[in-house]
Lab assay of single mutants.
Amino acid sequence: GIPATNLSRVAGLEKQLAIELKVKQGAENMIQTYSNGSTKDRKLLLTAQQMLQDSKTKIDIIRMQLRRALQ
């Protein structure tokens, strides 16, 4: 079985993952909103794209940590 310490770690990672998935969803929504907007929305679009990139990276890292914890 999986050690108890790993189980609480997994629960924490799953919570983090859920949050990051919401951030990713929000960033994707912002990108959709701003991509057909005016030029003043360009900065917001770039910010949203950066957020999305960061979020995807975090999600990958969390998933990797989850896999390790579940081994």
Rank of each mutant, 00 (worst) to 15 (best):
13 L>V: 00
60 D>P: 01
66 L>P: 00
17 L>P: 00
15 K>V: 06
41 D>Q: 04
21 L>P: 00
60 D>L: 11
48 A>Q: 01
5 T>L: 13
58 K>S: 03
56 K>H: 04
44 L>G: 06
54 D>M: 06
65 Q>C: 09
5 T>D: 12
58 K>Y: 02
12 G>T: 14
26 G>L: 15
17 L>Y: 02
44 L>T: 03
49 Q>S: 03
25 Q>D: 06
31 I>M: 04
67 R>W: 07
46 L>N: 05
59 I>W: 00
70 L>M: 08
1 G>M: 08
43 K>M: 08
50 Q>T: 05
18 A>D: 05
46 L>M: 09
53 Q>M: 09
31 I>W: 02
52 L>Y: 06
12 G>C: 15
61 I>N: 10
39 T>Q: 12
20 E>A: 07
11 A>Q: 09
45 L>V: 04
4 A>H: 06
56 K>V: 10
54 D>P: 00
40 K>C: 15
30 M>D: 10
43 K>R: 08
11 A>P: 04
31 I>V: 08
70 L>F: 05
51 M>Y: 03
58 K>F: 02
56 K>E: 10
69 A>V: 07
45 L>C: 05
1 G>N: 11
71 Q>F: 05
18 A>F: 08
1 G>L: 08
57 T>F: 07
44 L>P: 04
7 L>V: 13
48 A>I: 04
37 G>W: 01
17 L>G: 00
13 L>Q: 00
2 I>H: 13
63 R>A: 04
5 T>H: 14
40 K>Q: 12
47 T>I: 14
38 S>C: 12
4 A>W: 03
50 Q>D: 04
62 I>Q: 00
45 L>A: 02
59 I>N: 00
48 A>L: 12
22 K>L: 12
65 Q>D: 05
43 K>W: 06
55 S>F: 01
65 Q>A: 10
24 K>I: 07
4 A>E: 13
15 K>Q: 09
31 I>N: 01
55 S>V: 12
36 N>K: 10
23 V>S: 06
22 K>M: 09
18 A>W: 07
22 K>Y: 04
39 T>P: 07
50 Q>R: 15
10 V>R: 03
26 G>N: 15
4 A>Y: 01
7 L>S: 07
35 S>R: 09
25 Q>G: 02
57 T>S: 07
32 Q>A: 13
31 I>D: 01
18 A>G: 04
43 K>I: 12
47 T>P: 02
67 R>E: 11
71 Q>R: 10
60 D>H: 14
56 K>R: 07
27 A>W: 15
32 Q>Y: 10
3 P>L: 07
37 G>H: 04
42 R>V: 13
44 L>E: 05
22 K>N: 05
21 L>C: 13
3 P>T: 06
53 Q>C: 11
38 S>D: 13
58 K>H: 03
12 G>I: 15
1 G>P: 12
2 I>S: 10
13 L>R: 00
57 T>R: 15
18 A>N: 05
63 R>L: 12
27 A>Y: 12
11 A>L: 12
26 G>P: 00
28 E>G: 01
68 R>K: 14
48 A>W: 11
41 D>S: 04
15 K>D: 07
65 Q>M: 11
20 E>W: 14
55 S>M: 02
15 K>L: 11
42 R>C: 15
64 M>C: 14
60 D>F: 13
51 M>F: 04
66 L>Y: 01
40 K>D: 08
47 T>N: 11
5 T>N: 13
36 N>Y: 07
59 I>P: 00
8 S>A: 10
67 R>C: 14
69 A>M: 10
17 L>S: 00
64 M>A: 13
35 S>P: 03
68 R>L: 15
39 T>N: 07
51 M>Q: 04
28 E>A: 04
33 T>C: 15
21 L>E: 05
26 G>K: 15
7 L>D: 10
24 K>T: 03
65 Q>H: 06
29 N>L: 15
43 K>V: 11
57 T>W: 06
25 Q>M: 08
28 E>Y: 06
30 M>T: 04
2 I>D: 12
11 A>G: 04
25 Q>R: 08
42 R>M: 13
52 L>A: 03
28 E>L: 12
46 L>T: 04
61 I>L: 10
33 T>G: 06
19 I>N: 08
62 I>A: 00
15 K>A: 11
16 Q>T: 03
41 D>P: 01
51 M>E: 04
22 K>I: 08
59 I>E: 01
71 Q>G: 08
35 S>E: 12
17 L>K: 00
7 L>P: 13
4 A>L: 02
70 L>W: 05
47 T>Y: 14
20 E>P: 00
6 N>I: 08
5 T>K: 12
63 R>Q: 09
9 R>W: 12
54 D>A: 08
47 T>L: 14
70 L>Y: 09
61 I>E: 12
69 A>Q: 04
56 K>N: 09
63 R>S: 05
52 L>K: 02
32 Q>T: 08
11 A>E: 14
59 I>Q: 00
34 Y>F: 07
46 L>I: 14
43 K>Q: 10
14 E>Q: 14
56 K>T: 12
1 G>F: 10
9 R>V: 12
47 T>C: 15
27 A>F: 13
28 E>Q: 07
48 A>N: 01
4 A>M: 03
6 N>R: 11
40 K>M: 08
1 G>S: 10
40 K>I: 09
41 D>R: 02
65 Q>T: 02
3 P>W: 02
19 I>M: 11
34 Y>W: 03
29 N>P: 00
31 I>R: 01
59 I>H: 00
37 G>Q: 06
14 E>G: 04
67 R>K: 08
63 R>F: 08
20 E>F: 08
39 T>E: 12
24 K>Y: 14
39 T>L: 08
9 R>D: 11
11 A>C: 15
35 S>F: 14
44 L>A: 06
42 R>I: 14
47 T>A: 14
19 I>R: 14
6 N>C: 15
63 R>E: 06
3 P>R: 05
51 M>T: 06
64 M>P: 12
15 K>R: 13
8 S>Y: 04
68 R>S: 11
60 D>G: 10
34 Y>C: 09
10 V>D: 01
40 K>H: 11
32 Q>C: 13
53 Q>S: 09
1 G>T: 11
50 Q>G: 03
59 I>T: 01
65 Q>V: 03
42 R>W: 14
11 A>K: 09
36 N>H: 09
23 V>W: 03
15 K>C: 14
35 S>M: 14
55 S>H: 01
34 Y>T: 03
52 L>E: 01
60 D>N: 14
63 R>V: 07
15 K>H: 08
22 K>C: 14
18 A>R: 08
64 M>E: 14
69 A>I: 13
61 I>D: 12
39 T>F: 06
44 L>D: 04
41 D>L: 02
69 A>K: 02
22 K>T: 06
51 M>A: 08
51 M>D: 03
16 Q>M: 11
26 G>I: 15
70 L>I: 07
48 A>K: 00
37 G>N: 09
62 I>H: 00
59 I>G: 00
33 T>R: 15
6 N>K: 07
27 A>I: 15
6 N>W: 02
8 S>H: 09
53 Q>K: 12
37 G>I: 05
63 R>N: 09
40 K>W: 05
61 I>M: 12
10 V>A: 04
31 I>Q: 01
59 I>M: 02
20 E>K: 02
46 L>R: 10
21 L>W: 05
62 I>G: 00
20 E>Y: 12
46 L>D: 04
18 A>I: 07
55 S>K: 01
69 A>F: 05
53 Q>T: 08
66 L>K: 01
15 K>I: 08
10 V>G: 05
36 N>A: 07
21 L>V: 04
44 L>R: 07
13 L>A: 00
9 R>N: 08
48 A>T: 02
58 K>P: 01
